[in-house]
Amino acid sequence: MEPAEAELFRLADDELVLAERYTEWQIFAPTPESDLALANIAQDEFGHARLWYDLLEDEFGYDEADLVWERDPDDFVHSTLVELETPEGDWADTVVRGYLYDVAERLRLEALEDSSYAAIADRVAKVQGEEEYHREHAQSWLDRLTASDESRERVQAAVDRLFPHALTLFVPTEHEHDIVEAGVRTRSLAELREDWLDEVVPALESLDVEVPEPGAVVRPEPLGRDGSHTDDWFALHEEFTATYHELGFDEPAELRGENA
């Protein structure tokens, strides 16, 4: 696999699976306004996944069926952070997950701005334009939820549960050396991990939320990036692909504007 191809799968799969989880809140969010805002973020993330999958189609000859609908669930390389089922009503889980992901996403996109792979570099700005709202949204909710004791405890529980999985965002695969060497990404995952920790740990601590010591964290067994996943992912994959298989259409429908 080409280094750019490997990087694109990480990008696209993260966004797809995160979006799928976000849409679970539609109609179920705490208020109409918060419902609309999170749905918007879900659509953005689906849109980003589509943009990166499109690139895999254009540059590496895949089609949508290969990439999403008929791909073996063991071949998806998203972080386990995005696949975990959200406990019912746990808005704090979604806020924390969004925050941990969005900071990592900003750092990753910055490291792709000057990618040697021009087709990736060209698309980064489009994605960054939407990620700004996502971070502001997550940060605003974090600030407010941590302002009272009960909801801060929920934030704390979500951090305890999700932080070990967030670390899998930075797990390298056998392609990591080539990705950096070829300049597809201008910073290594180890560097991105340091930058991320430097940002999220003090930010959470300033809100009186304790963050586990990264070195002491017991890593979940599935790493996501190597195709190993939690049961939550396999159940989710089964759920969202079942209708596709039931219908047996010739190809997935495209609904694109002229300038898409």
């Binding site: 609309l36 805002a37 749905a39 502001e136 949204h137």
Partner: peptide, 19 residues
């Protein structure tokens, strides 16, 4: 929009009315 403060109001308004 219903929102608890101005910052959240701007976040919500941009989706509900600017989308």
């Amino acid at each position: 929009v219903h929102a608890p403060d101005r910052e959240m109001a701007t976040l919500f308004a941009q989706v509900q009315h600017g989308r």
